[in-house]
Write a protein that binds this DNA or RNA. Structure first.
Lengths: 113, 113
DNA sequence: TATTCTGGTTACTAACAGGTAACTACAAAA
DNA sequence: TTTTGTAGTTACCTGTTAGTAACCAGAATA
């Protein structure tokens, strides 16, 4: 899933893209926002993601220090996720992407004839 | 390459991620910057990209109105690419990603023993 | 005459991503 | 006793992505 060529690049920007440059991670970070959220909630809220892929993405985000995982030793298990300082610092970037999209999106709805 | 689920989402943010949320596009946009650049130069400067993938990515970026393609009817052919207004407006976002990376990157160089 | 130049395209193949379904633990509730 | 609930993991299979090498036009150069 993660590309070693990117993550081990000597260019910091390339490493950054290796960390957050795929389609799921910005979506997950955006959904999390400033709240603490459980695995099942993420699974329900993030559209079209499978549990397997969600697990993988969360694991990588944790490894990259973008979120924190809090597992409570209960049964049934309870696991909470929340953004780290690094993850929270990424939220304004997502906001500017939203502004960019709103400002420049080309509206060309797909017609099905 | 492009994910229809993302591009046809009713969420603008999801559509934005569908447009620029992969590993090559931010790299290409960053390399282009404010200059006009030829296909061969991009191929030489962007590390590890194949001509095939570069062609595909450039085509999608053009379709999404992020860059402009200027083909001169010469032989041998000459094709120049440059960012559109929309593409140029994305550059500050890439700059803030660089700052974010510089501020928060965890240094854990891979050791090969 | 053969080679070089550019910006691709095409066919083939290898690698990877992602989906589905089944399975786990164990407690509480029905 | 069976079901429910959570947060995964695993095996299996398919579909997509990416890499490689060969090929193209057609003028200029050697």
């Amino acid at each position: 899933m993660r590309d070693d060529k990117f993550c081990n690049s000597n260019c910091p920007f390339t490493r950054a893209i290796g960390t957050i440059g795929n389609k799921w991670k910005p979506i997950i970070i955006n959904v999390m926002g400033t709240r603490t959220i459980r695995f099942g909630q993420l699974d329900a809220i993030v559209p079209h993601i499978s549990r397997k892929v969600l697990t993988e993405q969360l694991k990588e985000l944790e490894q990259d220090g973008i979120l924190e995982r809090l597992a409570y030793k209960e049964l049934p298990p309870r696991v909470e996720y929340r953004l780290s300082e690094r993850g929270l610092a990424f939220l304004p970037i997502l906001e500017s992407i939203k502004e960019w999209q709103a400002k420049f999106e080309i509206f060309s709805p797909v017609e099905h004839n």
